[in-house]
Amino acid sequence: MNPVWIILKRELHSYFATPVAYVFIVIFLILTGAFTFQIGGLYERGQADLIPFFTFHPWLYLFLVPALSMRLWAEERKTGTIELLMTLPVTMWQAVLGKFLAAWFFTGIALVLTFPLWITVNYLGDPDNGVILAAYIGSFMMAGGFLAIGACLSAVTRNQVIAFIITVTVCFLFLLAGYDLVLSAIQGWMPQPIVDAIASLSFLTHFSSIIKGVIDLRDLVYFGLIIVFFLIANAVVLDMKKAS
């Protein structure tokens, strides 16, 4: 068996052996429901689509994903099991990938469990299911991006609270990179190309085009690159900790 798969299995097993999995899924489902109906006004809009549902995903992920990712490495370091894991015959890459994929797969499960909403809109009207599928894929990719950032930052510290707060902050900056809140801070003194580059890093910009049904390969590639970049950073951080 591939070590990545073995580690993935063990991680998932751990999620469900503790209340983490159930709390996460229940809170995620309650919040998505509440936002979609109460604030998004799914009924009042009179349109058979899931845009009110997906619009709130970035904001939900902003708090829920760091809560999931904060324990990835910080907890291993705290309990000392990282010493066990890293002295087993697995490479650093296999450990990084196994842990990340387990967390990603888990958010996938939570996402799939929102299927009653999809049934609801199909019952009420005749939505474009292609757009909905695209939005689900986009949401899943975005969750992966948040998780990769969180995993990397979780490797930096042994304190889960610190990992959580830093991850929320960094994810927030990535979310709003295309908006004035972030851009006004750099616009004055940075050259325009850099400001544009930072603006193009915005999760929100990329995600909002996906949920409208515009599947641009570049948006998916963008999230893919974010994941790859932060997983490499994750391995580098672990390597530095090993040497320090």
Binding site: I6, S14, A17, T18, T79, P89
Partner: peptide, 20 residues
């Protein structure tokens, strides 16, 4: 150090997996 939430048996199974 061991994974605290795992049962003793499944922990050993995990090690057996990793050790191929």
């Amino acid at each position: 150090p061991n994974y605290p939430e795992m049962s003793c048996g499944s922990f050993l199974e995990f090690i057996a997996d990793i050790r191929q």
